[in-house]
Nucleic acid binder design. Sequence first.
DNA 1: TGTACATCAGTGAACGCGCGTTCACTGATGTAC
DNA 2: TGTACATCAGTGAACGCGCGTTCACTGATGTAC
Lengths: 234, 234
Amino acid sequence: MLSLCQTVGMGPKPGVRAAHRARMEREILAVGERHLARDGAAALSLRAIARELGVASSAVYRYVESRDELLTRLIIAAYDALGDAVDAALAGVEDPRERFAVIGRTLRAWARAHPEQFALVYGSPVPGYAAPAERTNEAGTRLTRHLLDALQRMPHVPGLDVARLDVRPDTYGEPADLPADLPLPALTLGLAAWSMVMGSVTAEVFEQFGPQTVMDWEAHFEAVLVAALALVSG
Amino acid sequence: MLSLCQTVGMGPKPGVRAAHRARMEREILAVGERHLARDGAAALSLRAIARELGVASSAVYRYVESRDELLTRLIIAAYDALGDAVDAALAGVEDPRERFAVIGRTLRAWARAHPEQFALVYGSPVPGYAAPAERTNEAGTRLTRHLLDALQRMPHVPGLDVARLDVRPDTYGEPADLPADLPLPALTLGLAAWSMVMGSVTAEVFEQFGPQTVMDWEAHFEAVLVAALALVSG
DNA sequence: TGTACATCAGTGAACGCGCGTTCACTGATGTAC
DNA sequence: TGTACATCAGTGAACGCGCGTTCACTGATGTAC
């Protein structure tokens, strides 16, 4: 891989060191992800990671500024893993209603496969740690952008009399990614529909409904998607 | 209070000790709640509680079996605080649709006032700790019982063509509290509507929508309640 | 009412653990001439 | 191509911290006669 880069001449030649450094950074992140998945964010420990890598605990500080900085990287990695999954799942899907459903299904599948990562980004915040928005924002909004795009492009056929939604324009702000031409009721119902999807995934992954309530989550979730879409788009 | 009990003759007389013990138990729980609110469940520490009470760390073990047992008590206390709030708010409200809305509003108000308690019971699970269901179940289902009761008694006018909900009866189990005479589509839509409410509260309290998206959460939440009720009950 | 004994609350020291982070250091890898 | 110097990776010891939990103990509160 090193020689390949040199042969093809891409960028400054990496050298043995740069290659090792890149591999080490990847391994730290990978081990961190495994520990996260097993023990949760609060228990994430640089010493434990060093131990597993067979290296002195101080060596990790060559690659990572601090525990909190590693947490930040793990958050970004989680957002990106989910974002990549959504990108892949959306490929070739044109109909915006179907795109909404695909985003929901992908979120659910990813959350089930990586519950601790899901908790890290969409669950309760890690106490004593606040992710630096300027580093996480870009990865964190990938899913949201797809979602708002789909909402904007689907037909707006509210599933209820919108006059009953007593919402004024200044209820919502103007974040960078919010499409300006999304009519107000569609925005309200879109957020509501998405909260329904998120709430369902959360209920399943965190087992909020207690035992013996929902037996077939797959079927229930498909019904939730139908209801969510009916709300926004008829 | 002590003398009162003796005079009225309720049960075995408490004595100075019993009174002190009861007060101590209350204080430990209260300090625990404050620490929980400030630092989160993962940081809950018996030593810190003892320190604040001005007592040797070992003394706490007279009243609490272990850290995990205290966590269990705090979970039950949180469920009960929310349950009490819901009970109080529901008093005098007859219309089941309004009762559904009141439950939602109370949940939101309580979650905003006690975000860490909310996270403890409805957020990501505490790693390395599983609440013993036999102790938490009763308090944990108080809200659910009110909810299912309201769902059962409200008119069932689905907000969409129920034929599109391809849900079979065996999608759901038969937990003790699930009313048997709740028709299948109403159950599906009820859970979906409730997920929407929960998802909205979670989004607000955990700030999942990013900055500058929803400015007036109060107004947005009222719209969510309207949408939720429209889904189940027209 | 008074005394002997049992129960309980709280102490303080200790065990053993893991953590984040720093620091002076050795040895290997790169770079400039 | 060879040499002198700068950079980097990794070591191991240390600092200071907080934690849960146990244990033998003192002194106060209750109970039975």
